[in-house]
Design a protein around this nucleic acid. Structure first.
Lengths: 210, 210
DNA sequence: TGAGGTATTGACCGGCCGGCCAGTCAGTTA
DNA sequence: TAACTGACTGGCCGGCCGGTCAATACCTCA
């Protein structure tokens, strides 16, 4: 159903620094995403990754060093995938935008750990994630702008705000999932996405010139 | 500019249990919102509220008891204000919805501590906040449904999803503010709100029947 | 005025925290 | 084979954690 870095990786048979680093990163990603950095001890990470606490310090220097490495690791996958998606598409029209939103939504749906990781980084005020995906937003906004010039999107809105609009909707949907789950009459991921796309895409259509 | 419960409350001159409780709650609200529950010590709260750690235990029992009290306290203000707003309005049309969104946006804008508090609670998986505002969502969705029946909103979308849509946009805007701030070309709160409302309200207009 | 209750204090507890360090062990190079 | 590097271990450190408790200061009301 989704990537679960929290579960055990293959057991260590021989010395392999790279594999060990990866096992530690996976364990830390899972625990940090689940409970937040402040609430996870180095001992817990050591236990889950089947490695001594000292070894984590050996590889990552400190808890903060490990946290930085985890964020960088997780964000790299995210950014690569999103950038590839953005650069693959060639024309800027409603169908492209729809696909872009759906792809973004699916990525979050399939990577709940990443969503939670970023949520914690946001609350911490960590600037590194935002700085990195500024490039993605720039690319997305550029596409919207092209669509506006081509007349397929209304041009009385800031393209960056359009991107922010759908990013916020999708991100918060998954961040606050357990929260929404208690609301009467709320539906599935897909129903929500469908309804959102109806309103979003129609609202973005060019205004009639009457 | 906004309510700042983090700053010092009036100094204690005489014994007043109620005032002391309030001072502790304010200090805890500020610190929890800023750094998250796990990263705030009882000592830090004691220091900020100019009270001994033991006294906090006397009044709230435990750290978790204090956290619960803080959430309940903060949420009560939020829910009261939002419910009053929802019940005041009488008819369900586009103008009412616009006002509802603007009010919600302004409330978050003026209560950044509450926004962060809820964000931490969400990540913790705390169900209490979501359960409480389910009632607000129910009220809001009911208004949308009335508008659909009156023909002022498109009726091919789930009203709950409409509410979730704008709640997500507004909430995440403020939750990830420091994150967005690094994006090129992003504007002010008000510019974002304006652009969002254009797309949202036009997208929600009834479809032409051609 | 004095008795009772409670708000408030400061000393103290066991336990866990992140980090450090001396030392062991495996693989590589000469 | 001998010297060397770096992955890896276990034990220890000072310090902070949440929580407890007996003693005290103050208010209330009989």
């Amino acid at each position: 159903m989704n990537t679960t870095p929290a579960t055990d990786s293959p057991a260590p048979q021989t010395r392999d620094a790279e594999a060990t680093r990866a096992r530690i990163l996976d364990a830390a990603l899972g625990l940090f995403a689940e409970r937040g950095v402040a609430d996870v001890s180095m001992r817990a990470i050591a236990e889950r990754s089947e490695v001594t606490k000292s070894l984590i310090h050996h590889h990552f220097g400190s808890k903060e060093g490990l946290w930085d490495a985890v964020k960088e690791h997780a964000f790299a996958r995210y950014a690569d995938e999103q950038r590839a998606e953005l650069e693959r598409a060639e024309v800027a029209d409603a169908e492209l935008l729809r696909n872009g939103v759906v792809n973004f939504f699916r990525f979050l749906q399939q990577n709940p750990w990443v969503v939670r990781l970023f949520a914690w980084a946001h609350l911490e005020g960590d600037p590194s994630c935002g700085r990195s995906d500024a490039e993605l937003v720039r690319l997305g906004a550029e596409r919207i702008r092209q669509g506006q010039q081509a007349g397929v999107f209304r041009d009385d809105v800031n393209p960056v705000n359009v991107v922010t609009h759908f990013v916020n909707v999708c991100t918060h949907w998954f961040e606050a999932r357990t929260h929404h789950a208690q609301w009467d009459g709320i539906g599935s991921d897909d129903e929500f996405l469908d309804d959102f796309l109806k309103v979003f895409l129609d609202g973005l259509a060019p205004r009639k010139t009457d």
